[in-house]
Design a binder for these strands. Structure first.
Lengths: 354, 354
DNA sequence: TTGAAAGCGCTAACAA
DNA sequence: TTGTTAGCGCTTTCAA
């Protein structure tokens, strides 16, 4: 009533041109005389024109195909969550002509990543969501994508050189600091703190070392502390894996363990449980079913939630916003480092929107 | 391409009627013959019709007025945050013909609440967002709202008897349990734990007592513990307020304090700082500027984030979804009980979307 | 009770 | 380089 929203039509009238011309200026599709361009831009600057995105979407009755490249959800519950997020976004956007095609690769096989990335390229989608967990193999892929001008969004792992449309994930360095904080909090007895990187492959090493760096620098900043910090990179497939871990647990000075992967968290927890070591503090990652059990039983003290589901679903949304609504997306979307405890975990399991 | 979405037109064709009839059935606007009704419903049951909400919104070119009833943001930084969330939602939806009118009342004055609630009623908006912090005064208001069939959404404080369109907030009982958990965590020395309800009025008593109940039951569930729990209801306007607090701090056995209000948190922190009591653990509420400083300096150990900004903005969105998109909204939307620490607080300050 | 048709704001094809 | 116009899927008015 008060102030009817300004329409393209109004701008056209004010500038003395047709809606077609305004539209062309709006989307700089060219084929506009300098005079017309000038007049329209002048009007636009005076009026704070906000396009009606709803009408825009309906008008340009387009279908978009989005390719999602990520590890096989069957291999790892963490990636199963990511996959869930994609499925969720898919059903949400399906009615607006957005199709999401999955391209899954083997979490442990760089070649498979390369192969699937190539298939994404061949599929020529309108947008790409990608978890570039293999740094070196990913770089040339981005070259390809850029050549074809297909917008791509990174999630989970950041590769700034990729200059993506946007990155969705967490500040891993800070994540390590949070881990350190939680491990240190209220600990008065001197002793040993351990950092465990448990993974079947070291592909994520950058990922993990970033966390470790944050962890260590937290203590460096603290100045003099009572703890010695040791770290391990362990492969659960390694025959000596179990033994190495058990040796660690033997250490009577061991006060706490920070595990940098979600899978490793439950593995460590199960050992801690077996050995009845309830007094060793354990901080790990993610609200996976396996971890949930140990959190509830008190073996795990804190989880840092990476929210893989929401990372993925937001990734799709970013692409949709870009493709459909031509909306600008933030270059990086850093998720909060959610601290999960026995008492607040249920409040996170509820809606899943937040 | 593969499966074009089904349109009303398609249903009409299949049922051998016109789109007008289908629309009337869809929204049971009546004036449809039993035969037509039958045919259309039959087709509808066969096909999983999902209306295009975008087209619907554009088609019914309506404007909606939403009234927001909440305490004056100038009185309290917590409510300033809520107000921010409303402003945010307002600008987001303005272009689609949604207008939000603010109705502010005095946080300390029940009469002012009643008066403004009545003004909301007289304004006859299309939807209402309300923070019903005065329980007894709110009940008759809801009667009024229901009479006029205006949908209303509660936030911050739940009143189940109000049977609102939806409630947005937190599980306060569980919130108290989280507070207890954080206060207890890693505490080995026996001593005293204090629960502080600091507020200028006791209007929120239900609110606060719910938190206290959770706090106490946490320890009850724990069984034998080393702590005695004491609690206070304090009014900062009371001349003896300062003295009462200082007396509490004198207690050498005091190990930790749980403050149930966001404002009270900073008040307590400032006293703790003044007395140089860094060893007393402090758990409070919300990422307000005042609290932020004390969190960073280590006086406050944990904050439980109630996310007032997002509560409010989501409240508006719920109403919009209901009014504009005729989308179903969840009856209650319980926010996660976010644990904020020195190390993760920045990750929360960033985007604000999450 | 029904169907036809105009219109929501924008896009995009087309003719001029 | 321009303006005109026919949609997009749905709502809503109006005449039949």
């Amino acid at each position: 009533m008060v102030d009817k929203n300004i329409r393209i039509k109004d701008i056209a009238k004010l500038a003395g041109v047709s809606v077609g011309t305004v539209d062309r200026v709006l989307h700089n599709r060219g084929r506009v005389s300098p005079e017309a361009l000038k007049k329209v831009t002048e009007v636009m600057e005076q009026i704070d024109y906000k396009p009606n995105l709803i009408a825009r979407t309906l008008g340009s009755n387009k279908n978009y195909r989005i390719a999602a490249l990520l590890p096989d959800p069957k291999q790892d519950p963490y990636w199963a969550q990511s996959n869930l997020g994609i499925t969720q976004a898919q059903t949400e956007w399906a009615q607006y002509g957005i199709q999401v095609e999955l391209f899954l690769f083997d979490l442990l096989d760089k070649n498979s990543f390369q192969k699937m990335a190539h298939e994404v390229y061949l599929a020529k989608p309108d947008g790409i969501l990608i978890a570039p967990i293999f740094y070196h193999e990913a770089l040339p892929i981005f070259e390809l994508f850029r050549e074809t001008d297909i917008p791509y969004v990174l999630f989970n792992t950041n590769i700034p050189e990729a200059s993506p449309l946007s990155f969705i994930g967490q500040n891993l360095y800070q994540s390590g600091r949070v881990g350190a904080e939680l491990l240190y909090f209220g600990q008065h007895q001197p002793g040993t703190l351990a950092v465990l990187h448990i993974d079947e492959d070291i592909h994520d090493s950058v990922h993990l070392l970033e966390k470790e760096k944050g962890f260590r620098e937290y203590f460096k900043d603290k100045g003099k502390i009572n703890f010695s910090i040791i770290d391990f990179i362990l492969n659960p497939k390694d025959p000596s894996f179990q033994k190495q871990l058990e040796e660690l647990l033997e250490d009577p000075a061991l006060r706490g363990i920070f595990v940098s992967t979600s899978k490793g968290t439950s593995v460590t927890a199960s050992l801690l449980e077996k050995h009845g070591k309830k007094d060793i503090r354990l901080v790990g990652y993610d609200i996976l079913d396996e971890n949930l059990r140990y959190l509830k039983s008190g073996i795990i003290d804190f989880l840092i939630n990476q929210n893989p589901k929401r990372q993925a679903s937001l990734g799709i949304s970013h692409l949709v916003n870009h493709l459909m609504f031509k909306k600008g997306t933030p270059g990086t979307d850093l998720f909060p480092l959610e601290v999960i405890t026995q008492q607040n975990v249920d409040s996170y399991l509820g809606s899943g929107i937040h």
